[in-house]
């Protein structure tokens, strides 16, 4: 790990000012940043510690409905916040399927959004990677690509975004509150992460010094609470990144889907909102047939980026299963194995 200046910010303005310098990075829990620094993947010259900023660890109900979740709220605190989890069960389920209990106890909401990809070539400083070094090339292509992207990738980058949390969030129209030197702004989460295109080094829309201060869920998102699930396929029963994951939320009225939301994880460099699939669901009867159509729509543009064609078919099946689970209703209690294929009952 390189030497760096450590700056402990007392106010958001202080933090933003300190982090606007080139080479500065924000430090929250550090569960991803320190990992990257230890691997020599990133070498920031300055760490601006935001963990002592006041009031960013609060979960607030907004007057107009909805939630405002402070940037420093810990993943586990959000997942176990009774009111929040009741309103947004798929978000809680996604949180609890991510990482380990220890990491969830430390990792923050904003840090989760800012997670870097687990692409092994990104993590290996000896490999060429356009994210780490723009223009260097992408050595993942032609290499070990089992878990790489099948949607939205480019010849410059085929990595995926590793977050579970972001997947239901993007399905539920979450927005990101950002503070910068010119005040605050709000960005839909769907627009927060960037697809690689020809600049995979630009992962989010954040400008230099900008700080995530909160994530907002609109009041309308709670309307899905009775039919919201997250399902994550992984290579271990627990404590593994997603091979593919899906978040599905439905509003049902008199046997019809009045609105459906669908997002995928592990398939692209951003949490992938499947709007084409949502269009298929609109007004339809919730059944396997329509779920298959939705799945086909969601994956219509998918193409393998290497030895990962299986992920396309897997994602299709996963969508059907997740929608089926969502249609069956949110369980009363969080499953023993959240978001797992091995929860108590299979609604198939």
């Amino acid at each position: 790990m390189n030497r760096f200046d450590y700056v402990r910010a007392r106010t958001i303005a202080e933090a933003v000012a300190a982090a606007t310098e080139p080479g500065a990075a924000y430090l929250a829990a550090g569960t991803n940043l320190l990992d990257l620094m230890k691997g020599g993947v990133t070498r920031p010259a300055r760490l601006v510690d935001v963990t002592h900023l006041p009031d960013l660890d609060r979960i607030d109900r907004l007057p107009e409905g909805g939630f405002r979740v402070g940037a420093l709220v810990r993943n586990s605190d959000l997942a176990y916040d009774t009111a929040f989890a009741r309103a947004h069960p798929s978000v809680a389920e996604a949180l609890l399927s991510g990482a380990s209990a220890q990491l969830r106890n430390a990792a923050t909401v904003a840090g989760n959004l800012m997670q870097r990809t687990r692409c092994p070539y990104f993590y290996d400083p000896a490999s060429a990677c356009n994210k780490r070094q723009p223009g260097a090339g992408c050595e993942a292509q032609g290499g070990e690509t089992r878990l790489h992207a099948v949607l939205g990738w480019s010849e410059h980058c085929i990595a995926t975004h590793p977050s579970d949390f972001c997947v239901p969030l993007v399905a539920l129209d979450a927005a990101v509150e950002i503070a910068g030197k010119d005040g605050t702004r709000e960005v839909p989460l769907e627009a927060f992460h960037r697809l690689p295109g020809d600049a995979p080094e630009r992962e989010t829309v954040l400008e230099a010094g900008e700080l995530i201060v909160a994530v907002r869920l609109p009041a309308a998102a709670a309307a899905f609470s009775g039919h919201s699930r997250y399902l994550k396929i992984r290579d271990r029963t627990s404590y593994a990144f997603a091979v593919v994951s899906a978040a599905a939320s439905l509003r049902l009225d008199q046997g019809r889907i009045t609105e459906g939301r669908l997002a995928l994880g592990g398939v692209a460099l951003k949490p992938w909102r499947a709007r084409a699939a949502e269009a298929v669901l609109y007004g339809a009867e919730p059944n396997e047939h329509i779920f298959r159509q939705a799945a086909d729509a969601a994956l219509a543009e998918a193409k393998p980026s290497g030895d990962n064609a299986f992920k396309i078919e897997l994602a299709r099946r996963l969508i059907v299963r997740t929608l089926t689970r969502a249609a069956a209703g949110t369980p009363e209690r969080m499953p023993a194995l959240p978001a797992s294929a091995f929860e108590e009952t299979l609604h198939a």
Binding site: G30, D49, A101
Partner: peptide, 17 residues
Amino acid sequence: VNGRRVNSCLSLAVSLD
């Protein structure tokens, strides 16, 4: 740390004042 289990290898000591 403050009663919660965490991975101490990923916690910067100076941040835990």
